[in-house]
Amino acid sequence: MSLNPLPLTMRAVGINKYGDIDAIEDLTLPVPQPNPNEILVKVEYGGVNWLDMGYRSGTVPFPSPPPPKPLGGEAAGTIVSLPTDEGVLSDEQYRARGFHVGGKVAIWGNGAFAEYISAPWTNVFSIPDGVSTRDGAASMIQGFSALVLMSEAYNVQPGDRVLVHTVAGGMGLCFAQLIAARGATVIGTTSTPEKAEIAKAHGAAHVILYKQEDVVKRVLELTDGKGVDAIFDGVGKDTFESDLKMIRKRGTIVGYGTISGPLPPFDLRRFMQKNVKFTYATAMLYAEDPKEAREWFEGVFRLVADGTLKMRIHAEYPFTAQGVQKSQTDMVNGTSVGKLLIKIA
Rank of each mutant, 00 (worst) to 15 (best):
A176F: 11
Q177P: 05
Q177V: 00
Q177Y: 14
I179K: 01
A180T: 10
A180P: 12
A181C: 13
R182M: 11
G183Y: 12
G183L: 13
A184H: 14
T185I: 14
T185W: 13
I187T: 08
G188V: 02
T189S: 15
T190N: 11
S191H: 11
T192Y: 13
T192A: 14
E194I: 00
E197K: 03
I198V: 15
A199N: 03
A199L: 00
A201F: 01
A201G: 10
H202A: 06
G203L: 01
A205N: 03
I208V: 06
K211T: 05
D214I: 00
V216C: 06
V219R: 01
V219E: 09
V219T: 06
L220V: 01
L220M: 07
L220N: 01
L220Q: 04
E221Q: 07
L222K: 02
D224A: 09
D224G: 07
D224W: 03
D224M: 03
G225K: 07
G227R: 04
D229E: 10
I231Y: 09
I231V: 13
I231C: 09
F232G: 05
G234W: 11
G236D: 12
K237Y: 10
D238T: 07
T239W: 13
T239S: 15
T239N: 11
E241R: 12
E241S: 14
E241L: 14
D243Y: 10
D243G: 07
